[in-house]
Amino acid sequence: MQRVNMIMAESPGLITICLLGYLLSAECTVFLDHENANKILNRPKRYNSGKLEEFVQGNLERECMEEKCSFEEAREVFENTERTTEFWKQYVDGDQCESNPCLNGGSCKDDINSYECWCPFGFEGKNCELDVTCNIKNGRCEQFCKNSADNKVVCSCTEGYRLAENQKSCEPAVPFPCGRVSVSQTSKLTRAETVFPDVDYVNSTEAETILDNITQSTQSFNDFTRVVGGEDAKPGQFPWQVVLNGKVDAFCGGSIVNEKWIVTAAHCVETGVKITVVAGEHNIEETEHTEQKRNVIRIIPHHNYNAAINKYNHDIALLELDEPLVLNSYVTPICIADKEYTNIFLKFGSGYVSGWGRVFHKGRSALVLQYLRVPLVDRATCLRSTKFTIYNNMFCAGFHEGGRDSCQGDSGGPHVTEVEGTSFLTGIISWGEECAMKGKYGIYTKVSRYVNWIKEKTKLT
């Protein structure tokens, strides 16, 4: 034993070699072989497995989906700052455009905790909710729209109204504003409101030439003092309507412009014939205590009207009353817009006519005020429907199939267009061939041609 100890002390290297040989010859039971080890760690190889990531292109799944990435790591994937920024906006807080917040056709661009709407022409605001041009839906104005110097929408209202708090709607500024039905039992019968379409306001006024200088022999019209197929109006439903009495009662109609003036057809009036105007009328054979009678003290036909040349060209006249009318729910003026808007309103496509005229061709006159909704007829169809001249200051309205029309005794009465609950004068009943005849239409004086003249002559002093 002493000898062994001496050998170990003198030859430590020998001992180490012996131990190493023993270990190498022993069977290893701690580690699995290569094949079995792979069965336990069965993990798919990654895209760049075996390579240094710093030297390969980034992978979106590896960089940002398996674990949260930084902007720089995302930049490695896209290799483009702009594309990385677009991805980053949604990656950080989701897609803010998912709810489609942009209105009126706006395009949404996502941002971090926010979004941006790219608005089409005519709109602005956070969600493109603000109209900035009158060309689109009248700028959301209830009545009139004008573009300011910086191309912003400025709404306005006709006389007797003021802008509401929203700067879009119009509200009454006087007790009985024009064009409004205020009798409670008839307010439910107000005709369907007309909503502004998209309009090209630059070209809204037709490029028409008034044929002022045409000389033409007097034409022989049949029954051209021209509501057939209409309905009984309720008291106060058309408070701007008046009836004219002269040699015979209810020979023509008219509309209240203001307390002192009536507008009617020029062919209705004769110099030297006494005319009485009755406002607030409903049943011409009954006294309903809503009527107001006034005498006409002055007749002003349009300066281009000449019955000797043509009885229905420039067929418009103004009547001055001896005493002002007292405005109330049964006696209310009709609204008159400017030339541009009167023309736009007419193009809405349908209007209402009213009167006490004959209820059928050569038949009896109506006792109760009649009204009828009539569609506008395109000019080409209008011209083809008659052998008589249709001037540019006239328009056609009615039904091709016949059966409904204005008729004798309705002449001078109103053709009105309702705009968001307020009625505007767009025409004056003038003439036609018979009444409600198939293929024939009622012919009306186009008020847009005469609004400046009306307003100039009827100013209240």
Rank of each mutant, 00 (worst) to 15 (best):
366 A>K: 09
8 M>N: 13
59 N>W: 06
308 A>P: 05
446 K>V: 02
193 E>D: 14
176 F>L: 06
42 N>F: 06
57 Q>P: 14
329 S>H: 08
182 S>Q: 07
116 E>D: 04
362 K>L: 06
116 E>P: 00
191 R>V: 15
338 D>E: 07
390 I>V: 14
389 T>Y: 10
284 I>K: 07
217 S>Q: 13
389 T>N: 15
305 Y>S: 02
444 Y>N: 02
83 R>K: 07
198 D>N: 15
395 F>Q: 01
386 T>R: 09
254 G>H: 00
283 N>M: 11
262 I>P: 00
403 G>D: 15
458 T>S: 09
376 L>I: 12
198 D>I: 09
40 I>C: 05
402 G>D: 10
380 A>G: 12
273 V>H: 15
266 A>P: 01
260 K>H: 06
176 F>G: 02
380 A>S: 08
25 S>N: 11
128 C>W: 00
146 K>N: 08
177 P>V: 04
322 D>E: 11
325 L>N: 00
36 N>M: 09
280 G>A: 03
313 N>C: 06
61 E>Q: 10
422 T>H: 03
405 D>A: 08
37 A>V: 13
27 E>C: 05
403 G>Q: 13
30 V>Q: 15
164 A>I: 04
159 E>W: 05
228 V>R: 13
120 P>A: 08
53 E>A: 10
416 V>H: 04
106 G>L: 00
221 F>C: 07
167 Q>G: 05
109 K>T: 07
185 Q>A: 07
37 A>R: 10
108 C>E: 00
279 A>I: 01
169 S>V: 06
436 A>C: 07
317 A>K: 00
16 T>S: 06
230 G>E: 12
315 D>F: 00
193 E>R: 07
357 G>F: 08
293 K>A: 06
408 Q>P: 10
302 H>Q: 03
169 S>R: 11
144 F>N: 00
4 V>I: 12
244 L>S: 01
334 I>K: 00
286 E>D: 10
210 I>Y: 06
149 A>V: 13
146 K>D: 12
151 N>F: 08
154 V>A: 14
319 L>R: 00
423 S>G: 09
11 S>R: 11
267 H>V: 02
239 P>F: 01
128 C>P: 00
239 P>Q: 01
332 T>E: 03
75 R>D: 15
251 F>G: 05
415 H>A: 02
341 Y>W: 08
309 I>F: 11
47 Y>I: 13
153 V>T: 14
22 Y>G: 05
122 G>L: 03
227 V>G: 15
257 V>A: 03
449 R>I: 05
217 S>K: 07
321 L>M: 06
341 Y>G: 04
43 R>M: 12
133 T>D: 09
235 P>T: 06
